[in-house]
Design a protein around this nucleic acid. Structure first.
Lengths: 348, 348
DNA sequence: ATCGGAGTCGCATTCGTTTGCGATTTTTTA
DNA sequence: TAAAAAATCGCAAACGAATGCGACTCCGAT
């Protein structure tokens, strides 16, 4: 907008000096005499001079903006990640442009293109559920755009990433159910493309094996969308079995929620008849009846770490013209035990 | 970043013509011959030319970016608003920079300054809970920055706003409780600075008066943060009264949630002993036990409308150099009746 | 009196694009 | 055939700031 903001030229004209002198004076360049600096700074203060970021961006080929692509803002976990990103980006002087893929690969592609065209200094990406090809990402990385992935990462990418330890989180959750005396534990599986889905399934399997429990394949039900409805349908299917499970470990909280609905509607008790454990510890999980046990993911911290990694990469690259070696941050999960899984009836 | 992107000059050099001709050819200017246009467009396509948005922004004093200030992203309602904003901004070719005030006036001020320095074309603002002075907003508006407020609006501002009909929403909710036979209805009041708080209280009062019911001031309890804990504490206080209420209408869902916890812990039944109604229809409200009746606010639509108003204002202003007359969009709420308020035990 | 150096500051260019105006060539009209 | 009109394109300035390099002043040293 033409806000009629004062520019470096206005100061120069007023003081009868050249724009370059003003520029240098403002940055405390040694070439400029103390008197000139004082005059410039005072006038700049008086006129409330604010440098034009757009001009700066053009001149330095740096926008001080980072782009974020997430599947959906309305997911509690992702909103906390964004808060974490904003937190460090803000104090490092970066703006944050947020785009959503809405779980669509097509949209993810156009988002990347749009961010690229906006000349963001780097991107923070969590893949869409649909993403099963990576040319769009490879192509953009090949152009030299720093990228850091979080949560739903591009695994073969030669780039930094921040993930939570889904495997051991799932293992902890399953172990907890086993400790509660559960023998036939079902698993609601998530979107098949995502690595986190595989990790959680693997953690589930490992825990069973370590306890010498069999892995029943028919107790593993796919919930490709991970919605409440799918969770409910999956649980209904499980309950109809000749030998239904005595516990359900879900790949996320909404599906666990749906399962709880199905169980209650079938007239069964949670956790007495069937224990339930979710994943992600959504905001409302503690408010369920019974409160839902869940694996807490540190979303805010994940956002912070991802932003830190990206900003470091951006600044190393602009100074030393080399990419720092990719890093992978593995964040610990934390099992939050609530009534939905406490068969003993007592919290530990 | 120096992505070595092809510029208009590269095309010009390759074709042996001037950059100005290339620029005009790309925008289908009548001065350019069809042959030149064809050559330019083909080469641009071949080299995958993408205009440099930063240079464009500088040249036109227009960034095609709108800034958003919201209290907190992690609130379900606000995330849906953001989705609505992104939706129309995206298709209108605008980027969206999101900042959070974290309910702090100080932070709101710095957010406005940061957005202004980023030369956003306009701002979408929902006030923080703390905001009780408006110089920072007036000053920025005086500089000519188009602003549209949503939900928590600056009422005396000479600018467009999008609000939901809080008053009639609250009235509907209260009327519904009255229809259910409730006589002593309590109200959990929200942050006192906000207009929406007053509107909801007013709607509550009006409904009582229209039904010739007395307004008991001691049944109106303040929850300045609007949190679960406050709602719980408020309900506990109400339950200790000699003559406790038979219904609670809360200014928002989390406080209603807290109230439900308190009621259940007191061994009372919802809705038989005390009916509960919330406001905003958060994602998890339908998952409560019992499911929480709530006033649904069209967050996505609110975001869309706000973005539309702002973009219209931006574009009218840049063409005709006048601000269009401010508009106020009043969005209808919708009472979603669930078990927490159905004393009859049957949904209508 | 001349030179050298330090201390200050401005010119011109750069980033990529747009655009008013003028210049050149081609075509049309009298 | 000459003049006028149209078609086509380039020059240069502009947006706001940063910066290499050159220019200038002033001072003390020789």
């Amino acid at each position: 907008m033409k806000y009629n903001q004062v520019t470096i030229k206005d100061i120069a004209r007023e003081l009868g000096i050249s724009p370059s002198t003003v520029s240098r004076a403002l940055k405390d360049h040694p070439d400029i005499s103390p008197e000139t600096k004082k005059a410039v700074n005072e006038l700049a203060e008086k006129l409330n001079y604010q440098p034009n970021i757009v001009a700066l961006s053009l001149r330095q080929s740096k926008t001080n903006t980072i782009g974020v692509i997430i599947p959906e803002i309305v997911h509690f976990f992702f909103s906390t990640v964004i808060s974490g990103i904003e937190d460090v980006a803000y104090s490092a002087g970066y703006n944050v442009i947020i785009t959503q893929s809405n779980e669509s690969l097509q949209r993810e592609k156009t988002d990347i293109k749009a961010l690229f065209n906006s000349r963001v200094d780097g991107m923070l990406i969590s893949l869409s559920r649909e993403t099963n090809s990576f040319e769009h990402i490879d192509a953009t990385m090949a152009k030299g755009v720093p990228m850091v992935f979080f949560d739903r990462v591009y695994d073969s990418a030669n780039s930094s990433k921040v993930i939570v330890d889904d495997l051991s989180g799932a293992k902890d959750a399953t172990q907890h159910l086993i400790d509660q005396g559960c023998k036939r534990i079902a698993h609601l599986e998530g979107p098949p493309n995502l690595d986190i889905t595989k990790q959680r399934l693997e953690g589930f399997r490992e825990a069973l094996k370590e306890n010498n429990l069999p892995v029943y394949d028919d107790l593993i039900v796919s919930c490709p969308q991970g919605t409440i409805e799918e969770g409910k349908a999956a649980a209904e299917k499980l309950l109809k079995m000749a030998n239904p499970p005595d516990a359900i470990f879900s790949t996320n909280d909404p599906a666990a929620m749906g399962a709880m609905q199905a169980i209650k509607e079938a007239g069964l008790k949670i956790p007495q008849d069937i224990a339930v454990v979710g994943f992600s510890n959504w905001f409302f999980s503690s408010l369920m009846d019974p409160p839902l046990t869940s694996v807490d993911q540190p979303g805010f911290e994940m956002g912070q770490e991802a932003a830190k990694l990206l900003i470091r990469q951006i600044e190393v690259k602009s100074k030393e013209h080399i990419d720092p070696t990719p890093e992978t941050k593995l964040l610990k999960t934390r099992l939050v035990v609530r009534d939905s899984s406490l068969k003993s009836g007592k919290k530990k």
